[in-house]
Nucleic acid binder design. Sequence first.
DNA 1: CCAACTTCTACAATCGATTGCTCGCCGCTC
DNA 2: GAGCGGCGAGCAATCGATTGTAGAAGTTGG
Lengths: 339, 339
Amino acid sequence: MGRVTLKEVAEHAGVHPATASRALNAATRGLVNPQTAERVDQAAQHLGYIPNSIARSLKTARSASIGLLLPDLTNPLFPPIVRGIEDVLRTVGYNAWIVNTDNEPEREADAIASFRGRNVEGFVAATARLRDPLLEELAESGTPLVLVNRRVDSPNVPSVTVDDKAGVMMAVRHLFELGHRELVHLAGPQDLSTGVARLQAFRQALEDLGLPAEPERIVEAASWSATGGADAMETVVESGPSYTAVVAGNDLIALGCYDILARHGLRCPDDVSVVGFNDMSFIDRVAPPLTSVRVPHYEIGTEAARLLLEALEHPDRHPRSLVLPPTLSVRRSTAPPPG
Amino acid sequence: MGRVTLKEVAEHAGVHPATASRALNAATRGLVNPQTAERVDQAAQHLGYIPNSIARSLKTARSASIGLLLPDLTNPLFPPIVRGIEDVLRTVGYNAWIVNTDNEPEREADAIASFRGRNVEGFVAATARLRDPLLEELAESGTPLVLVNRRVDSPNVPSVTVDDKAGVMMAVRHLFELGHRELVHLAGPQDLSTGVARLQAFRQALEDLGLPAEPERIVEAASWSATGGADAMETVVESGPSYTAVVAGNDLIALGCYDILARHGLRCPDDVSVVGFNDMSFIDRVAPPLTSVRVPHYEIGTEAARLLLEALEHPDRHPRSLVLPPTLSVRRSTAPPPG
DNA sequence: CCAACTTCTACAATCGATTGCTCGCCGCTC
DNA sequence: GAGCGGCGAGCAATCGATTGTAGAAGTTGG
């Protein structure tokens, strides 16, 4: 593939490969005579020389690449994060290896091993479970690692997340101000930090506002999906508590909620208001456009990349975590309660 | 990172590195005494040996990886394709490098160079323009390359695409059967094969059905986006031809069309029917749910990966292209014309 | 009992680039 | 005019794994 080698360039320029290497490398270019350097440049250009990163990696033990662990790229949450990461990495000549784990620890382990074999210099993981031995071990081994979106239980692993608590607070307060007093929470699975944090925040928010926390108004969805949300909402409807608004663990759960409301002849927002979380793309186009806690996904990506690069430059420095503020995108799925 | 080397494993097992290498390699394992091989396995296991792919790549000139060129990962079109590609590659131990080019030829060129430097064994590109010297050159240079979704003008570059013509035919026929006779086409940009093919197919379909092709009912959008679609639709509305249905170049253009219809007080589907193209995720949740030509994106990905692997195994064999059949997802954005 | 073979393992070169070290040469100083 | 300093470039080792070839050990047959 990259057929032309440094040696050929050197020959063509009439110098030793070592000299050619130095000439072509910005950091060492000063060590060679400007005219010679220029000659090497010409030769490289002329021959269409592309440095063999593989060989370079082998020698330098660096790869200018990082591993990116995702649960599933087709979840619209992740592409903006990926873009954020790549856009920052690109500015310093780094690349990202992306792998989907489908939340299977085995695939995660495989991916990590594969990445290590490829000498990645660090990791960004969006796959963290609350208890996640794999990732904790990775972090403890000294490998630069930044979590995005989700955290692990241990506070020693740096992460970039949204302020889940503040987000839920905003959602609840918004509903409260519209006049809602009986709120349902369709919580996400409680094995992820986001699920736990949002549920906790929901309880806290009710308490802050002096509202009772009816157990029947809180249901945990089995998955962060429309079907998970639908099943959870169905449980709520069947168990029969009164309510006028729903705070969903994320947008997909909210969509599942929409389905169940419709099936039971309940209109949104006339009968029931719904708030989602993430403000994912196109959620402003569903019927009705969903009020949602906006998470700055792209920024999560850029910040994660920056944190990782920082960790690469200063391996000794203590890792920082970042919590970004959400905002609330108010749309037509929320309105004053009926009556 | 991958700290333990083959040499250490060999020492630990009391054999020469060469022997350890052969023992660990399925293809050459037969050359070493089963007991010795077992001892090497133990040692590798014990030390947590991870083969250094970099070193292997350098020696073997293979990398078990391919380059994947995307315009923009955040376009919901691409993640399913990527998944398809990865799912197939994973079964043979291959990985994909993903890069976003934002349709900028320069970034594309950079990415290709970077990939070559990393010894990728082949490419999948979703970035093809009709005239695309970069990719055509790549293909001519003998590098295995498969295009997805879009084609280049030259027929010599293998590709996996949907049958655009058939898709548009289905859309037009569907509208025709509902009773529509005056159809608008919001064509996509004509620098991509998809834009051209769909527009051609639209003209052809009208002819087949004996409908006139009013120039004013055909407008080219400036981009494959909602704003592109909105601007195009605005042009149609202003120029004032009569029409009862719109065939959009893709789903995003259809969404833009929705916006303009709403702005002009036209209801979909009561006043105007709209058909999209791609059937992207969540398009069944917009208001009204969009009738759309369903493109099997995941399958495009899997087939592209298979084609590429085939090309890698048999570099001599003539490259094939694949055209996959679309289906029509009929939803509530299409209905009989008013009156 | 030795030669001819078969197994198995060791040796060493190699992939392409990087880099510490050495050395030649030039110019300057005293 | 001899010596010192320093610039510029070449030499060679190195990263870790793979692989052609050579050679040692063990087996079989004549």
